[in-house]
């Protein structure tokens, strides 16, 4: 079974960074791919909320021949402060890979590209939630160094709980809190 799947995979996928000019061309496919894994679809505004503000943190995997959407990751990056000193926090909001192309490291490549883009933008940390039963997703992130920081009871509509996963990109003392540097971060 694995072999036949392997055969389907194009020799080299095309990974591209999203930009607003691509909305018409790719947004419908992004929505279609992500909606497959959701019990309830997000409205167009949810996609625009992320893609309009953080398009450069969205990456797509395409079949080079057919231009078919095979995978996508959608993120954001903004200052965060709740119970602790402020950080510039990246958040991986959506990640999807077409089911027949899974287990080939496409999701990992997408996530790495997103994290790389966050690192370039001086992010302090990256967080996300994943369903407790989604072992492949948990493994993917844990192989990138994420730790489970807390468990969230009945987080999803289906009644399943989630784990919050956290990856620090810097030592706590070096975290800046916002894009302009952390001079007045703590007070």
């Amino acid at each position: 079974m694995e072999k036949s799947r392997m055969a389907e995979l194009p020799p080299e996928l095309r990974y591209i960074q999203y930009e607003h000019a691509l909305e018409k061309k790719y947004l419908p496919a992004i929505r279609a791919l992500i909606s497959k894994d959701l019990s309830e679809p997000y409205s167009i505004y949810v996609y625009r909320y992320f893609l309009y503000q953080w398009g450069e943190l969205c990456f797509m995997a395409l079949d080079p021949k057919t231009d078919t959407m095979i995978g996508v990751v959608v993120c954001k990056l903004e200052p965060h402060q709740s119970h602790s000193p402020p950080t510039l926090r990246g958040y991986i909001a959506m990640l999807a890979v077409s089911s027949s192309y899974r287990n080939h490291g496409i999701a990992t490549t997408l996530v790495r590209k997103a994290i790389d883009a966050m690192v370039e933008r001086d992010a302090d940390e990256v967080v996300l939630e994943t369903e407790e039963t989604n072992i492949p997703a948990m493994k993917l992130y844990e192989r990138l160094g994420f730790l489970r920081s807390k468990k969230l009871h009945r987080y999803y509509l289906n009644g399943n709980s989630a784990f919050r996963l956290v990856l620090h990109l810097k030592r706590a003392q070096d975290m800046v809190g916002d894009e302009n540097g952390g001079e007045d971060g703590l007070e």
Partner: peptide, 22 residues
């Protein structure tokens, strides 16, 4: 033992011990 392309054990320790940092 999982690879850590973006962080190291020290940073992971800070994630883990966050409740006690203060």
């Amino acid at each position: 033992k999982l690879p850590q392309p973006y962080s190291d054990d020290h940073m992971r320790y800070e994630v883990r011990m966050k409740p006690f940092l203060g």
